[in-house]
Nucleic acid binder design. Structure first.
Length: 120
DNA sequence: CATCTGACAGAGA
DNA sequence: GTCTCTGCCAGAT
């Protein structure tokens, strides 16, 4: 099973206008403890064309390492999708209560099937 | 091999 | 809500 391929697939399922956390991605990939690897994957572009801008840490902070063309690009893209991004002491933050991706059982089942179908 | 690092998270105070 | 401490694990050195 390839964790990175899974991570990419999961990221692609994040609905537009919603955000998911690294831990959430890791969980859906079947590796609850690999949150850091999710970040690593996105950082290294190992997640293909997955929408990395919709992935934030557990606090909703845009961790913003520079795999974006310009600083604040992540923020811009999120706002473009209707996500409210506010500045805080810690940096740009989204409201996970409002714009966080709520996984449904169907999302999980769908993913399970895809993983199985693609043997990853 | 041993260590260190990091787009992280959870538990406890 | 905050802050600190600990566990994680793939990659790099």
């Amino acid at each position: 099973m390839n964790f990175y391929e899974r991570a990419a697939l999961v990221c692609e399922q994040i609905p537009k206008g919603k955000t998911a956390t690294y831990g959430q991605i890791a969980l859906l990939c079947g590796k609850p403890k690999n949150a850091r690897q999710v970040g690593y994957a996105l950082n290294r572009g190992l997640a293909g064309d997955a929408p990395a801008h919709r992935v934030v840490n557990a606090k909703g902070i845009l961790s913003g390492a520079a795999s974006f063309a310009t600083p604040n690009l992540q923020k811009q893209m999120l706002e473009q999708e209707g996500v409210k991004v506010t500045w805080t002491e810690d940096g740009w933050r989204v409201d996970l209560k409002k714009d966080g991706w709520k996984n449904t059982m169907e999302d999980a089942l769908w993913l399970r099937n895809e993983f199985d179908a693609r043997d990853i």
